[in-house]
């Protein structure tokens, strides 16, 4: 699995899906990311990322129920696939390994 397959934003979105399951859909994800990062995140951008991830096979989706504020339109609920889960943990493993190799006093200089 090449690293380039997962962009940074995609990775964050994928993580957010994992966090929000079973109620992960674009509005919720965008709101979550806004809360976490403090930056505006448009549903469009999230939606696009979700579609890309789905194409890559990291996510699967079903149409969920409709609500009044959506004007009676259904939402698309995303769940993470096994492949998606594996990729996420791989990414995490890479990062943890690298983190662990940082000399402790180097890290202190930044904080």
């Amino acid at each position: 699995m090449r690293r380039s397959d997962l962009g940074e934003f995609e990775e964050v979105v994928l993580l957010a899906v994992a966090v929000l399951t079973p109620k992960a859909y674009s509005v919720m994800i965008a709101e979550e990311l806004e809360r976490e990062t403090g930056q505006t995140v448009s549903t469009g951008a999230v939606h696009a990322a979700l579609q890309r991830l789905e194409q890559k096979g990291y996510l699967s989706s079903v149409l969920g129920e409709a609500t009044a504020e959506r004007g009676g339109r259904r939402k698309r609920i995303f769940t993470i696939t096994a492949l998606g889960g594996r990729v996420l943990s791989e990414v995490q493993a890479v990062r943890t390994r690298l983190w662990d190799r940082i000399i402790p006093n180097v890290r202190l200089e930044w904080s």
Partner: peptide
């Protein structure tokens, strides 16, 4: 169309 418009409206309400 359905999901996109739904998303937009829901987010607006929020």
């Amino acid at each position: 169309r359905e999901e996109v418009l739904g998303d937009l409206h829901e987010r607006y309400a929020l």
